[in-house]
Amino acid sequence: MVPLSWYVALSSTLFLIGLVGVLIRRNIVIVLLCIEIMLNAVNINFVAFSKYQHVIDGQIFVFFVITVAAAEVAVGLGIIIALFRLRETINIDEINILKL
């Protein structure tokens, strides 16, 4: 039996990788991919706790997280396409039209 703390360690390391990716990458598509990594890290945590506590609710939560992730990807990619049409770039630090 794998200890629960290993799952938590795996999930937090994965979350950290995603967070670092969001912070350091310039390409806005990669930033969205890293957000997906972070959501998946949270999902691993939910499923692990759901198994070790014999409660099914964690898996239901993962279901809703996947739904929200799909919605987020659709809207995020729409925003990226609109931005690309406007500015001809997908580098985050060149997109500053909301800055005063």
Binding site: V29, A74, I81, I90
Partner: peptide
């Protein structure tokens, strides 16, 4: 969906790889 958008935009990444921090 991601692959569609990446191929639709077809942007060659130029210049720096990471942001300045």
């Amino acid at each position: 969906l991601y692959l569609f958008v990446v191929m639709l935009l077809n942007v060659q990444s130029r210049g720096r790889f990471v942001q300045k921090q």
